[in-house]
Nucleic acid binder design. Sequence first.
DNA 1: TAGGCCATCTGGTCCT
DNA 2: AGGACCAGATGGCCTA
Length: 197
Amino acid sequence: MNSDSSLSSRSSSPDMDGGERQKITGGEHGLRSGDKSSSEESNKYKLKKQVTEEEMYHLRLKINGRERKRMHDLNLAMDGLREVMPYAHGPSVRKLSKIATLLLARNYILMLTSSLDEMKRLVGEIYGGQHSAFHCGTVSALTSSPSSTLTSLGSGFQHWAGLPCPCTICQVPPPPHIPITSAGLTRLTSDGKDGLK
DNA sequence: TAGGCCATCTGGTCCT
DNA sequence: AGGACCAGATGGCCTA
């Protein structure tokens, strides 16, 4: 459980042992019977109250842990996004903030989309609609642009006047992309951390 | 020192 | 019921 905190870019898990316990067990109020007459009843109640508070504490701990893990996973995904963003990585370069990462990613996608459209248009001009000769991966291999990007995207696009392509090349499923999971991103984040800050 | 960024906690809501 | 997701609050760290 505490291994999560090692993944954090800032080791600012301040109080997993002290502070959190203090915060969580703040609930002394609200549970009061008022009658001191029946001690048996009172003991029973006290026991029940104790169990309940303990249960509540552990439940809170569990929920907090889940939320922490969720946020860590989100940060791992964010790191993965930073990895593929076209900006200077390095020890002397400050890490992109989350909002900056998202905005840059959006602009990057828009830019790639427009250049892809432009490329398709050019290819369409050059080959004048000779459909089956140059296609998807073949086209990407012919271009000088980052071919890996185009190859991976190629089969997912519609070609030539917006019609879905029926050819066998396009029926090949896209290459499996690496899922963004904690396991899949451990490498990215670990060496990403070295260059951060 | 103010402001930005971040991690964490917490309660609410929705979904399975 | 339990888990995922979300947003607000809070406090710490860092930089200009």
